[in-house]
């Protein structure tokens, strides 16, 4: 039974990684940049939700959409001010700018909200579902996290497959110049991508802090790096890849903690990543690109 319980915990943690990884992968697919500030957008989303719930006494049904709204605006603002002027710049300059934005968000949060960790209130009911005569307990939190991830995954697949904007996104990630020729507004498409990614980051922030209720200005950086790893693991730029990579990473991490060693769990996660990339150099579901001369 403990195996099943670890598996469910792993899928739950993996769902959070997957939601964050979706933001990384979508932005990478279109703008071809590693948005290092993504992890810190998660932290901002969590703080907004925290204050909405704690200081203003709003219900979670208002607090979570509010956090999504703030993060969406933040994501679009960052894109407009910091990344858009660098569209033609070398990729390393964009990377450094993203790192700068990440520092900015972290230190800004430190100034506004101080470094004292805050205890995140439980957003969902503290109830749990008992199965097999109480041998297996699954908290509501876990169920909501997994359900949210599945809903987001299905929603995004439909969005990129069926809607006009979704098709425009795929066109932009395939060939930006051809997309312009087809009359697609590339700038707006990139902006929308950032908006969706940031809204997902807000959800991930709330889910993350519900599971691990300690909120600090640096809360987002390690999950951000792990989710980034998950996105690469699954093949960066691929939406199903981010989903798969996130879930697998979560399961590996929980299993490593449970069966091998708590201290070495991070090392094991990263070791598996290296091994996978050595066997499949573009990730699990990544496309192989052929270099033409």
């Amino acid at each position: 039974m403990s195996f099943l319980s670890h598996l469910i915990n792993g899928i739950s943690l993996g769902s959070i990684y997957a939601i964050i990884a979706l933001g990384y992968t979508m932005v990478y697919g279109i703008a071809k940049m590693l948005n290092f500030a993504h992890g810190d957008v998660i932290m901002v989303g969590a703080y907004v939700c925290f204050f909405a719930l704690n200081s203003f006494g709003l219900p979670p049904a208002v607090g979570i959409p509010l956090a999504m709204l703030v993060c969406t605006a933040l994501g679009m603002l960052i894109e407009r001010l910091a990344y858009k002027p660098l569209r033609a710049a070398p990729s390393l300059s964009v990377l450094i700018t993203a790192i700068g934005v990440s520092y900015f968000l972290q230190n800004g949060a430190q100034l506004i909200w101080s470094t004292n960790p805050r205890v995140f209130p439980s957003v969902f009911e503290n109830a749990a579902v008992n199965l097999f005569n109480g041998q297996l307990t699954i908290s509501i939190n876990t169920i909501v996290t997994i359900a949210a991830c599945v809903v987001i995954m299905v929603g995004l697949t439909l969005f990129t497959g069926k809607t006009k904007m979704g098709k425009a996104m795929r066109a932009c990630s395939e060939d930006k110049d051809a997309a312009i020729l087809m009359g697609i507004n590339v700038n707006r498409t990139i902006s929308v991508t950032f908006a969706i990614g940031s809204a997902l980051a807000a959800i991930a922030g709330v889910l993350l802090c519900s599971a691990y209720p300690l909120l600090k200005p640096t809360t987002g950086s390690m999950p951000g790096i792990k989710a980034f790893t998950a996105a690469v693991f699954g093949g960066i730029g691929s939406i199903p890849g981010a989903f798969l990579g996130g879930i697998l990473l979560g399961i590996i991490e929980i299993f490593a903690k449970a069966y091998i060693s708590t201290e070495l769990s991070d090392a094991i996660v990263f070791l598996v990543l290296i091994l996978v990339l050595l066997i499949k150099p573009t990730g699990l579901l990544g496309k192989k690109t052929v270099v033409k001369v």
Partner: peptide
């Protein structure tokens, strides 16, 4: 490219952890 970047990042984390 980016795949090498992420693997080196992973290497750094492994060394730290070890």
């Amino acid at each position: 490219g980016d795949y090498l970047a992420i693997v080196t990042l992973a290497f750094g984390e492994i060394v730290k952890s070890l």
